[in-house]
Amino acid sequence: MAETATHEHAAHHTSTGLSNNKLGMWLFLGSECLLFGGLISTYMLYRGRVGTGPTPSQVFDIPFTSVSSFVLLMSSLTMVLAVSAAHNKDDRATTLWLTITALLGATFVGGQVYEFTAMYNEGLGFSTSLFASSFYTLTGFHGVHVTVGIIMLMSLVGILNKSKVPGSRAETVEMIGLYWHFVDVVWIVIFTLIYLIPV
C-alpha cells in the first residue's frame, strides 16, 4: 500500500499483506469475466441468424479490425511502461506514457465509431437482425469500457501533475493499468471469436 507522504501514516496493516484496492480490483475483474462471457455467448448463439439483413462476412472489415487490435495491444504496452515508471517514482515518464495510452485508446474508439457508422450505412441497423443486435451490444459494451478507461487515464494525468510528491499515485496508476489490460484481454477474445471465426 503506497504511503501517502503528506500524511505520515503507517500503511494500514492487512492480514494477507496485499493492498485492499488491488484485491478489490481483481475481484471486480473476476466478475467482469461473467458479464462479457454472457454477452459473448449471446453473440455466439445468434451470430447465424441474419434474417434479411447483411451477413457478418459482408460487413466485417478484417484488415481494419486487426489494426485496431494491434493498436489496443500497443496501448497495453504503453500502459505497462506507465505503471513501471510510476513505481520508479518518475512522474514525468508516467504522465507521458499515460497520455500516449489515452491517445491510442482514443484512436481505437475512433476506429470503432467509424466501423459502426460504416456498418449502419451498409444496412446493419440495431434492430435489422439478431446478429446486428448482439454484435452492436457486445462491441458497444466493450467500447464503453474503453471510453471509461480513457476518461480515467486523462483524469489521472490531471491529478498527477498537481500532486507534489513523485510516485505518490503509483497504486492508482497500477489499478487503472489492471483495468486497461483487462479491457485489452477481453478484446483479444472478442477479436478472435467474432471477427476471425467466419460464421
Binding site: T14, S15, T16, L18, N20, L23, G24, L27, F28, S31
Partner: peptide, 9 residues
C-alpha cells in the same frame, strides 16, 4: 467486493 476484501484483509 467490499466484504470479501474485508474478510481476507
Amino acid at each position: 467486493v467490499n466484504l470479501i476484501v474485508t474478510v481476507l484483509n
